[in-house]
């Protein structure tokens, strides 16, 4: 871990800190791409009856493509998780799944709405409570959608070899999880790209680095730990 920066501008403003390693960013964006395609094709199937009219061989084309894309995405994402586990994904997921009392308190008092309480609950670690909720829900939704989607795909490919009650429950849960995941995604995009207090974090997921000042303000405990672990880290020289 290191802190570095650009050669010009205000010394502290331009210093950056590594927030997400490449493996974590790959997982994030691969999941984003897969979920966007699957959500798009899934909503089309749910709301547009015409999407069911194209038949190829024994199958409806768009449901088949949706199912195969889901299966392929699941395999690829699992591959990224396994290969990237020692390269930062493991650390990040462990941190995101570690809860303490302050995390729960932050969720309960809604610091977004009560800024005076926010100060008392600072500093926080690498992930804010809401981000931890997002990670948990993302894992739960991805797992649930993969399992229920596999049942639906198997029913289609086998032309009705599975118990119909299992297929029915899987379809119900698949739909419910997809809509819930879409809502969580909307909230995630809002906080990552629009909300003034949090949108700087998007840069961390794109370039891997965030402003050291911003990290200190929002994730003080984590930023301090990064400082300690990087004794050689230096802020950039002033001026150009």
């Amino acid at each position: 871990m290191s802190i570095d920066g650009h050669a010009s501008g205000n010394r502290h403003d331009k210093a950056t800190i590594l927030r997400f390693r490449p493996a974590m960013r790959l997982l994030h964006w691969a999941h984003t791409a897969a979920f966007s395609l699957l959500l798009g094709s899934g909503l089309t199937l749910y709301f547009l009856p015409k999407a069911h009219t194209i038949i190829v061989g024994p199958y409806r084309l768009i449901p088949l493509l949706h199912g195969l894309l889901g299966a392929l995405s699941t395999v690829l994402l699992l591959g990224v998780v396994l290969l990237g586990w020692p390269r930062g994904i493991g650390d990040d997921i462990k941190k995101a799944l570690a809860w303490d009392r302050k995390d729960l308190a932050r969720l309960l008092v809604l610091p977004m709405l009560f800024p005076q309480l926010r100060e008392r609950l600072q500093p926080q670690g690498k992930y804010a409570s809401a981000q931890k909720v997002n990670v948990l829900l993302t894992i739960a939704f991805a797992g649930g959608l993969a399992v229920t989607g596999s049942v639906l795909l198997a029913q289609m490919l086998s032309r009705n070899a599975l118990p119909i009650d299992l297929v029915g429950h899987s379809l119900d849960w698949h739909d419910l999880l997809a809509f819930a995941a879409a809502l969580v995604l909307a909230a995630h995009v809002y906080f990552a790209a629009i909300h003034p207090g949090t949108r700087a974090s998007l840069r961390g997921m794109i370039t891997g680095r965030v402003s050291a000042e911003w990290a200190k303000k929002h994730y003080g405990r984590w930023a301090a730990r990064q400082d300690k672990q990087s004794p050689k880290a230096k802020l950039p020289p002033q001026g150009g």
């Binding site: 009856p49 069911h52 009219t53 038949i55 409806r60 009650d165 029915g168 429950h169 379809l171 119900d172 849960w173 739909d175 419910l176």
Partner: peptide, 15 residues
């Protein structure tokens, strides 16, 4: 879960 409240919905999956 059985059945979920929204699951009782006719889908028009004609060809």
């Amino acid at each position: 879960c059985s059945p979920l409240p929204f699951s009782d919905r006719f889908r028009i999956n004609t060809v």
